[in-house]
Computed example of a mutant assay.
Amino acid sequence: MPSDTSSAGNLIRRIAMTLFKLGLAVFLLLGIIVVGAQAIGVVTANAGLVSGVVDGLGKAMTVAAGVTGLLGFAMSYLFEWQSAGED
């Protein structure tokens, strides 16, 4: 029978993985939107679109990427991942 500590640890790991996947999807989707809009702006010679999309979505994309990166770092401890070469 699993202990409460093990159950709580598994719940925390599942929540962390779900949040990581959600954050990854959010910042990648925002990145695709930003790059796509900038490509359209370059093709149509619309400088306002190229810079405006970064003004509108750049901060949200950067925050989502940063939070997801920090969560990934924390997960390395939760899941006890080891680097190649560590024993």
Rank of each mutant, 00 (worst) to 15 (best):
I12R: 13
V67K: 05
V54G: 10
D55F: 13
G69D: 01
G69L: 08
G23L: 00
A64C: 03
I15N: 01
G85M: 05
I33T: 03
V34F: 02
M1C: 10
T44D: 06
S51V: 09
L78A: 12
S76T: 15
G36E: 02
V26L: 06
A65S: 10
S76N: 12
D4Y: 12
W81E: 01
L70Y: 06
L71H: 04
T44V: 06
Y77D: 11
A25R: 07
A60Y: 01
V26A: 06
V34E: 06
V54K: 12
I15L: 06
L49S: 06
S83T: 13
T62A: 15
D55Y: 11
Q38I: 04
V63N: 03
L11K: 03
K21P: 03
G72F: 02
A39L: 15
N10A: 07
L71D: 00
L28C: 13
A45R: 15
S76H: 15
M17Q: 09
V42S: 12
E80N: 15
L30D: 02
V54P: 07
L19T: 07
R14C: 13
A45H: 15
A84H: 08
D55Q: 14
A64K: 02
F79W: 13
G36F: 03
G23D: 01
V50F: 06
L30Q: 04
T44Y: 02
G72L: 02
R14W: 10
F27I: 01
P2R: 06
K21D: 13
T5P: 04
D4C: 11
N10C: 07
G72N: 09
L22R: 09
G41I: 00
L78M: 15
V35C: 08
G58L: 02
G41L: 01
E86M: 08
